[in-house]
Design a protein around this nucleic acid. Structure first.
Lengths: 118, 118
DNA sequence: CGGTATCCTTTCGGATACTG
DNA sequence: CAGTATCCGAAAGGATACCG
């Protein structure tokens, strides 16, 4: 597997901090969500990180962005694309594996955990 | 999803550089492989990295290690555990998604690419 | 052979302040 | 509101040399 391998690159950005959490946050509700709304739901993320990850995901075609500059203050919304939605089963695959082999953490498989609610 | 979430942690170490490549290298052939044999098949990896990743994977229960110190020079071998083998379909899930949506790279889906030979 | 130890560079991510 | 700019510390990873 080479560094320019699509699968390698996919693993690479999926595993960056916050990325999966953002995808799941957008999946939850499956509708347009505002920057501030996403940010509010992930208390500790900085605007820099959220912005960076969203731009990345948009560039990958996983997230789409809609800006309405007529509005004031400006309104920007994000949601998963079809490609992004199709990533959910992949994340579920990781979840299933983890639940099969690694449930050593009682907090997992609980309501506290976004991925475990999947 | 919290930092101590098992799924989060799984994503985290799966995505570290070299990890998936090592898993696939051990899957290829599905037999005990020596440290040097693995290293030789991944030209650019340093012994430090290979050693560190293997110890990690062993600690996670994904890889098992067998040392024969009677032999000289010392012989150490590694292979996937049952848990590790069960990770292959998960990686295939990522592969399928990537092939569905992202085959922008001609080198992918070729014989050059370990994951694409899966 | 199968690693460690050391050092060094690069990348990542957080804090904080600021802007159209 | 939806970001960007700047700075900084921590962590990851590579190069090289060495050891039991």
């Amino acid at each position: 597997m080479r560094n320019d391998c699509t699968v390698y690159k996919t693993m690479d950005y999926l595993s960056k901090k916050w990325t999966v959490m953002i995808i799941l946050e957008l999946y939850k509700g499956s509708r347009w969500k505002r920057f501030s709304e996403i940010k509010r739901s992930m208390e500790e993320i900085t605007p820099k990180m959220l912005s960076e990850r969203l731009r990345n995901l948009e560039a990958e075609g996983i997230v789409e962005r809609k800006a309405d500059s007529e509005e004031s203050p400006t309104m920007v919304c994000y949601r998963l694309t079809e490609m992004g939605l199709d990533l959910i089963p992949v994340i579920k695959g990781v979840k299933s594996w983890a639940l099969r082999w690694k449930v050593d953490n009682p907090a997992c498989a609980s309501q506290d955990c976004l991925v475990c609610v999947l």
